[in-house]
Design a protein around this nucleic acid. Structure first.
Length: 131
DNA sequence: GTTCTTACA
DNA sequence: TGTAAGAA
């Protein structure tokens, strides 16, 4: 059961979840309001997300990309709770898939950070107009 | 500097 | 949904 334990462990700040899911902070908070996710809170009331939360968020984004609205997404999630795990196996992504996605997106996040750093360095060679 | 809440466009 | 303001 340690696998599920780690999955439910609140570890990530919203900035990480934003990069992992490509959702805005606004959207993430909005989905929380609608009970699609329930991230834990820490220290100064900051949201701490678990891998389960990221998993759910990724599925939400998937449904969103398919043009499904909040009502539809809620239905799908409620079905997932009501409908037990037995009847629909392909509905939720597997551990392996989740890890694969996470590994891929975390690498991209790292690349983006490095890119940002490089851009920061390069910016010394440019003159930005206005400011 | 990051994140939170609330409120308005 | 995006963005702004003010607090933590």
């Amino acid at each position: 059961m340690s696998r599920e334990f780690r999955r439910a462990m609140p570890l990530l700040p919203i900035s990480m979840v934003m990069q992992l899911t490509e959702l805005t902070a606004r959207q993430i908070r909005y989905y929380e309001e609608h009970k699609l996710i329930e991230p834990a809170r820490s220290e100064g009331n900051r949201r701490m997300f678990s891998l389960d939360d990221v998993d759910a968020l990724l599925e939400i984004r998937e449904l969103l990309d398919q043009g499904i609205n909040m009502a539809g997404i809620k239905k799908v999630f409620d079905m997932r709770k009501t409908n037990n795990v037995k009847s629909s196996n392909k509905l939720s992504i597997s551990d392996a898939e989740l890890r694969a996605i996470l590994r891929e997106e975390m690498q991209q996040a790292q690349i983006m950070q490095k890119a940002s750093l490089r851009q920061g360095d390069l910016s010394r060679f440019f003159q930005v107009k206005g400011e």
